[in-house]
Nucleic acid binder design. Structure first.
Length: 934
RNA sequence: GCAGGGGUAGCCAAGCAUGGCCAACGGCGCAGGCUUCAGGAGCCUGUCCUGUAGAGGUUCAAGGGUUCGAAUCCCUUCCCCUGCACCA
């Protein structure tokens, strides 16, 4: 009797996969549904967090299949780029964590040896993903279409894509600045730190380098993020303990730190060292001229100046820069700060004020000074106005003047740009990463106004979940600029057709790929060879251009026409600003409008305690096979679908998953118990159960249509069993209705927990796969408002009884229920019809049988009118349904007696009651009988 | 900086785009009872405060406002989080 989930999972997976029920074949005339998830990058073992999105996709595709769609649900692997290379590198250098993890997962030494090769890493993990994750979760992915992005066929496809981008004039060349290791070449700077050992959070900042001319003609290049403060410069800062060097830049002599020279070499074309070295302290006391402002200022000693940051030369704006303020104070120099910015909340010298406030005493108190600098920077940037000291820019807002001044200074040859990381970045090899200028980098021109505009228009027509993201998308498309699309270096991918030895970057080769799933089937089956797949081939199958050279081309073309476009592309929130926009734009740019994607579904993450994204580096991620073993697949699937909305991050909580495991087995037990039930039909109870079920099926269909899996699962896994339990509790025992409801219920369960569903399906004596049955549809004929209102009435009465028992602590012996007098019901009816309050009162008061109730009537009518105004239309509806409360409650008397352990339950009409010592009967109202307990 | 998300009872987490069915779904935890004499099993009840009659009171980051009525709409403030391009 116990639910053996392990056996059940195995049994049904074997059957499904043997019958290949996942395989999608074109059926002309049958409506199709194409869903896929953003294929995972190959970066090692996945964890329970990854399964969330995959599971959503499987549930949706199973649902659509049951709704009569011909479903295409393919999957593949994104092998391009760095992750698998990074993984192989880790194996090669014997990274202990990596080796331990591999061994824990049962890898022998031979396999580990093999994994030093990135291509082997891809092969190995592709298999893990398919066998240990996807099939293990019962996903009905079309396994005949598996593909990865470094296969020959895929590369042909990408090559074609870039030929087309070029034809559309969407490939352009321009200067670019990228992270670069002097030893290893190009590196990626990102949070996963595949290439680097430090600095994953670093951003590339643009410093403006202002050229201060000294008396001997050499320049001091001061780097700043705030070029507008040039008007407030009072002096220069040089670190006296640092040795500076002289270099020649475009014929000018510059003096900067030696560290700066190294960096500038990678960014400027014309640069060389003159060999002259100058100690910092030898520069002190000399003068230089502020560019544009043409003011002579002295060079002072600033020990806070870091030769590693930018040029190692700093201009001093004490009025508005906390560092400068403190350093100036410490220097003891007799220099008056120059105020140049007016900002709300501060006086003449904001920097001075904040140093005072925060109690900053020394220029080496970096922590506080950084904080102070940030505060002042933000405050002045947003609310600051340049004052009369600022020449032509006086009166402008900082946020507007900043770029203007920068451009002007550059145009006049007084300044230039230098790029620098916001923090130190160290390569895996130990070298400091620099920023390198690439003069002729290739870009995909996503900034193209026409492409952007059409993409925005198309997004309007798409089904995008959640709604918020749909609203966000046009802004993202506007913001999305040109993207560098190739890179030279050791990583996997397709060679760029217009530059030998350069590889297409991994985002750019994963935009149009869903269409390749249609081709990959033919490649996998050997029906077409990658070598055949040239420009002509893809032009024909994707664009319908030219002629088919072979019959199979026609076949593929028909499949493309049938399956495309994608109905849902499902992916994690990390794809919101990069992958999804380029997915849309590439389709819009290269394919005809009828192939543009129809929908996107974004889900959030499973996080660890403390809201951290689960990552292997942080440890503690639960391996998938272990979790499956422990909780069972169906429990996990239900957990993903039901524990929270897809659009929030969820903390992985093993306890919670365990609860779903219990839920699964309790459903199983319940079905078994229900199968034992036999007895008479009651009439009312069966009508009620059918009605409630029909209503829920209607809701569930509505939820599923908008992919609201959570609310659908709630109805299916919680509300329906509650109804069934209530039916039994009420004494229902009609086997026919139970079998009828079970059959529907099991179908509803199927997309979410398919193994359980199949097992139950078999248990109730059905043949075939429930996975291939039709999803239950709303049947209006089962709706019986009367029976539902009656059952609600009973529940309400029981609630009231409970409340009374609780408050009074009475142990009920005899329970009296007094149903509403007829005239009160009449009041409801007439008011609901819209009759005037006054008329109703007048009418009733004049009636003979009510003549002694004048006061009560007018009060009651008034209150009721007020009450009805507050009710929703659904609630009002309940009062319109006519039921016989007296008869119904009499029938329930035994049930109530049993539930409350009373000796007797007496139901009477308030008009004719024989026993009412507490005068309770006067409180009776329609659908709210008065109660007396003793 | 640019773009976006969020703050709900002890905890997690619904609801908030269509204000009233909301003291606020569900779960965890906690308390009591039942069942089971086997397990991290199952079932019922309670869990903001007050209350010996089905009720009332105070809540949904903070402070204002709109409204007969606001967790839900508007404004202000505070605090968290995410993405930002050779990372997928």
């Amino acid at each position: 009797m116990k639910f053996n989930y392990k056996e059940v999972e195995k049994k049904w997976q074997e059957k499904w996969f043997k019958a290949k029920i996942y395989e999608a074949r074109r059926e002309e005339g049958k409506k199709k549904f194409f869903i896929h998830f953003a294929y995972p990058g190959i970066s090692g073992y996945l964890h329970v967090g990854h399964m969330r999105g995959f599971t959503y996709a499987d549930i949706i595709s199973r649902y659509k299949r049951m709704k009569g769609y011909n479903v295409l649900f393919p999957a593949g692997f994104h092998a391009s780029g760095l992750p698998s290379v990074g993984f192989a590198k880790k194996v090669e250098r014997g990274d202990p964590d990596t080796l331990r993890m591999l061994k824990e997962n049962g890898c022998d030494d031979k396999t580990i040896e093999r994994l030093k090769d990135p291509v082997e890493v891809v092969k190995f993990f592709s298999k893990v993903y398919v066998e240990d994750y996807w099939k293990r979760f019962g996903f009905l992915i079309d396994y005949s279409r598996l593909m990865d992005t470094i296969s020959e066929g895929y590369k042909r496809f990408i090559r074609w894509q870039f030929l087309k981008l070029n034809e559309k004039k969407l490939l352009i060349q321009k200067t670019h600045f990228a992270p670069y290791c002097p030893n290893c070449g190009p590196v990626a700077v990102d949070k996963s730190e595949t290439d680097i050992s430090k600095g994953g959070d670093a951003q590339i900042l643009e410093f403006v380098v202002l050229k201060f001319k000294m008396e001997d003609g050499a320049f001091l290049p001061a780097a700043t993020l705030r070029p507008e403060t040039i008007f407030g410069v009072t002096n220069m800062w040089i670190n006296p303990h640092v040795e500076y060097v002289e270099i020649e830049v475009n014929g000018e002599r510059w003096i900067c730190s030696s560290q700066a020279v190294k960096k500038l070499m990678y960014q400027f074309d014309e640069i060389k060292e003159t060999g002259r070295r100058i100690r910092g302290k030898d520069l002190l006391g000399k003068k230089c001229k502020v560019p544009l402002v043409e003011r002579n200022v002295p060079i002072l000693a600033g020990s806070f100046v870091d030769p590693n940051v930018a040029t190692g030369v700093v201009m001093s704006v004490p009025a508005h820069a906390p560092y400068d303020w403190i350093a100036l104070k410490e220097s003891g120099a007799n220099i008056e700060p120059i105020s140049i910015i007016k900002v709300k909340g501060y006086g003449k010298f904001p920097a001075g004020e904040i140093c005072e406030e925060m109690g900053i005493k020394s220029q080496l108190d970096r922590e506080k000074l950084d904080k102070a600098t940030e505060i002042i920077y933000k405050k002045e940037f947003h609310g600051g106005i340049l004052n009369e000291n600022c020449m032509d820019y006086a009166g402008s807002r900082i946020s507007e003047a900043k770029d203007l001044i920068k451009e002007d200074l550059i145009d006049r040859g007084l300044a230039t740009i230098m790029r620098e990381f916001s923090e130190e970045v160290i390569c895996r090899c130990g070298e400091r990463v620099v920023i390198k200028k690439i003069p002729d980098q290739w870009f995909i021109k996503y900034s193209d106004p026409e492409l952007t505009e059409i993409s925005k228009q198309h997004v309007e027509t798409m089904n995008i979940y959640p709604e918020d993201y749909k609203r966000e998308m046009p802004k993202v498309l506007d913001w999305f600029g040109d993207r560098a699309c190739i890179r030279k270096g050791s990583w996997l991918g397709t060679e760029f057709p217009f530059k030998r030895g350069w590889i297409i970057e991994p985002i750019s080769d994963s935009t149009l790929y869903p269409i390749y799933y249609i081709v990959s089937k033919f490649v996998n089956e050997g029906k077409i060879k990658p070598e055949e797949m040239d420009e002509e081939f893809f032009d024909f199958v994707f664009l319908g251009k030219g002629k088919a050279k072979k019959e199979i081309w026609e076949e593929i073309r028909r499949d493309v026409l049938y399956w495309y476009p994608v109905d849902i592309n499902l992916g994690g929130k990390e794809h919101k600003t990069v992958h999804f926009p380029v997915f849309v734009m590439n389709h819009v740019a290269l394919l005809p409008p009828e192939f543009w994607p129809r929908g996107i579904f974004v889900h959030w993450w499973i996080t660890q305690k403390g809201k951290e994204k689960i990552s292997k580096s942080k440890g503690g991620a639960e391996p998938i096979p272990k979790a499956v073993e422990q909780y069972g697949v169906d429990a996990m699937r239900l957990y993903y679908a039901h524990s929270a909305s897809p659009f929030v991050d969820v903390e992985w909580d093993p306890q919670l998953v365990s609860n779903y495991k219990s839920r699964i087995s309790s459903i199983w037990n319940m079905v078994n118990e229900l199968l034992e039930v036999k007895g008479e039909e009651n009439g009312h109870l069966e009508r009620w159960l059918r009605s409630s079920m029909a209503r829920r099926i209607n809701l569930i269909n509505k939820y599923m249509e908008e992919y609201n899996l959570r609310d659908a699962a709630n109805e299916i896994f919680f509300e329906i069993p509650n109804d069934l339990k209530w039916y039994i509790r009420r004494g229902g025992k009609d086997r026919n209705v139970i079998m009828e409801i079970l059959e529907k219920w099991i179908k509803l369960v199927s997309p979410f927990t398919p193994h359980l569903a199949e097992e139950m399906w078999e248990k109730i004596g059905k043949e075939g796969f429930v996975s291939l049955e039709r999803f239950p549809e709303f049947e209006e004929r089962h709706i019986s408002a009367e029976d539902e209102v009656e059952e609600d009435l009973l529940k309400e009465v029981m609630n009231d009884l409970k409340e009374i028992v609780k408050v009074t602590k009475i142990k009920p012996k005899r329970i009296f229920l007094y149903t509403s007098p007829r005239w009160k019901r009449e009041v409801y009816e007439r008011l609901l019809k819209g009759e005037e309050v006054g008329n109703v009162i007048k009418d009733l008061v004049q009636r003979k049988d009510l003549e002694d109730k004048g006061k009560e009537i007018s009060k009651f009518v008034g209150e009721t009118a007020k009450e009805l105004r507050m009710l929703s239309s659904d609630d009002k509806e309940r009062f319109r349904i006519s039921i016989n409360e007296l008869e119904f409650l009499k029938e329930c008397a035994d049930f109530i007696k049993k539930e409350f352990g009373a000796e007797e339950v007496i139901v009477e009409s308030a008009e004719t009651c024989s026993y009412d010592p507490a005068k309770k009967s006067r409180f009776a109202k329609p659908l709210k009988p008065a109660i007396y307990i003793e």
